[in-house]
């Protein structure tokens, strides 16, 4: 069970907004890079987010570059899941690979600051602030397996191969 507060963002949050290219030189210093998470979408995010919280966005979250640093810095900030109407393909796959679930759902039913409770196995999102109940799109089976192992590295270490 995941529980935390919603931080709301709009549509088309690119990887440039999540982890700006001007911090390119920090890519091998992840804790430093993570200090700038979401900086160009909301400069105050990094200082306000708490472990367990959620990034809640509109459509096409994570479009743009293939930088896996984008989901990584979100995860390092303590975020337990990203909720979006749709997500860009490379971001989506990268996020599961590093153990960060991306849940596709109707995020219009979630407001900034709402308290959410998410049951990944049951596929439900409870909005404790409004009482609304949401469901999210089925996580593709391969990705669920990868997520359950904590990401692709632990998955491969365990199975030694793709065990689809």
């Amino acid at each position: 069970m995941l529980r935390g507060k919603a931080f709301k963002f709009g549509d088309n949050i690119s990887t440039d907004l999540i982890s700006p290219g001007r911090y390119f030189h920090l890519r091998s210093d992840l804790p430093e890079l993570a200090k700038h998470v979401m900086e160009d979408a909301d400069p105050s995010f990094a200082s306000r987010v708490k472990p367990g919280d959620f990034v809640v966005a509109g459509k096409d979250f994570g479009l743009g570059s293939s930088r896996e640093h984008a989901p990584l810095v979100i995860k390092m900030a303590g975020v337990s899941a990203v909720l979006a109407k749709t997500a860009a393909k490379i971001f989506f796959r990268n996020a599961f690979n590093i153990g960060l679930p991306v849940l596709i759902c109707d995020t219009d039913k979630i407001n900034e600051g709402d308290e959410l409770e998410i049951d990944l196995t049951a596929g439900t999102i409870k909005n404790l602030s409004t009482g609304a109940e949401l469901t999210f799109g089925k996580i593709p089976e391969v990705m669920l397996k990868i997520l359950n192992e904590g990401g692709l590295v632990p998955y491969i270490k365990k199975y030694g191969d793709f065990a689809l």
Binding site: G64, S65, S66, R67, E68, I90, R93, N94, N97, I98, G151, L152, V153, I156
Partner: peptide, 26 residues
Amino acid sequence: GADSHTGMAGALGAFATGMGSTDVAI
């Protein structure tokens, strides 16, 4: 390729696609 524009090689009739660092490491 660990770069989003890897799909460019599709111009030569290859199935080319961008992925992240972990996928390419594997």
